[in-house]
Design a protein around this nucleic acid. Structure first.
Lengths: 205, 205
DNA sequence: GACTGTGAATAAGTTCACAGCT
DNA sequence: AGCTGTGAACTTATTCACAGTC
């Protein structure tokens, strides 16, 4: 499989989502220009990205929405659903569990974990909350793919260690501290404060 | 003012946060190597970044934590607090309003907006919820710097238009669709599904 | 004429290698 | 010796310019 950068993959996922919306409204053809308008990515960038996955468009006409979607999906997503586990069922953890966007995409929350006794055993939208110590067992049993850190920062490294121990291959870290893990484990940091602050800086230039 | 890239700014904000923690524990000196360990950024990258802001370290010794913090802050953040308004007080909007990380940083939520009658007039953590139509007036009156879109995707463009109209210079968009705005308005998209999906792809390579 | 696909040019970002300081 | 600071090399990402197709 050809080497494709993370940025291209992210954009491909965006194209897939957009194509799905087009297909739903029975649109069969689309041009890179229109995709550009819908996604905010430049048309050249879109053609460059697509060309990495194969030659799938027809000059003068554009792309068949269904074909393009299939080609992109073959490269980036073959699985039925990606199974997620949330650690920390506070405000952010709960919001993630209820995030409506996941339903449409192939993302499924299959377990949640918390330390607070009063939360354990309860369910949110049908997803059971387990004590953190049950992590490794539940993660294996429920075949979790990715773990989400939504705990207070004091605990995030500890939770990350538990995730690594449980064999998770990817971690999304919403806590505002760096976590360390063996480099075979992929980590994505989403640091809300930094996003806000840097956007603000951008407005002052 | 010298041109400094968005990536460098984001990292500078991370250094500032880390320096604040060090200062709080009475650490007066720090090396690029230690900052690297604490932030996850490489030491060379850190020195390169810092060098863009001035010559502030001493060879053989390292950086004075307080001085370095001041130098970085001079470039990226002079304001007292950045004032935010949240549009959409659902699960995500509420989680953002309660996000504890903002308290430490210079980020302050000063207003919230929603369409649902039953939410209007209520407060969350002392922040009043207004009807969306009051947007322009409240944004001006409360001197809001940045707007946050946490509404269902059908409404996000409409809300974005309202923000632009109200004179906001920056928008953080949590909805999974592209929004358009005059290019003088800075936009940051945070698309949770794409983050999760792309992380998953990364684990499969 | 209106699209795709792509080599070439350009720009942005990161790492290397090492000079220079104390 | 042990650190900073930085030009140079390298790598990655984006845009340009245009050939090719229907």
């Amino acid at each position: 499989m050809k080497k494709i950068s993370g940025k291209t993959i992210s954009r491909a996922l965006l194209y897939i989502r957009t194509l799905e919306a087009l297909i739903k409204e029975k649109r069969f053809m689309v041009s890179s220009g229109e995709l550009a308008r819908l996604t905010g990515v430049s048309d050249v960038q879109i053609r460059k990205d697509i060309s990495k996955f194969g030659r799938v468009g027809t000059p003068r006409i554009g792309y068949k929405t269904v074909d393009l979607k299939n080609v992109l999906e073959d490269f980036v997503l073959q699985k039925d659903a990606i199974r997620l586990a949330v650690f920390g069922v506070g405000n952010l953890g709960t919001a993630i569990m209820k995030y409506p966007g996941f339903r449409r995409e192939k993302l499924k929350i299959v377990a949640a974990f918390d330390k607070a006794k009063e939360k354990i055993g309860r369910s949110i939208d049908g997803v059971r909350i387990y004590p953190v110590e049950k992590g490794p067992a539940v993660i294996k049993k429920r075949r979790v793919d990715l773990g989400i850190i939504a705990v207070p920062e004091e605990c995030s490294q500890e939770v990350a260690d538990l995730m690594v121990l449980s064999g998770l291959k990817g971690i999304i870290n919403f806590s505002p501290v760096a976590i360390s893990a063996p480099k075979k484990v992929a980590i994505r940091d989403i640091d809300l404060s930094i996003e806000f602050l840097s956007l603000y800086c951008e407005t002052r230039r």
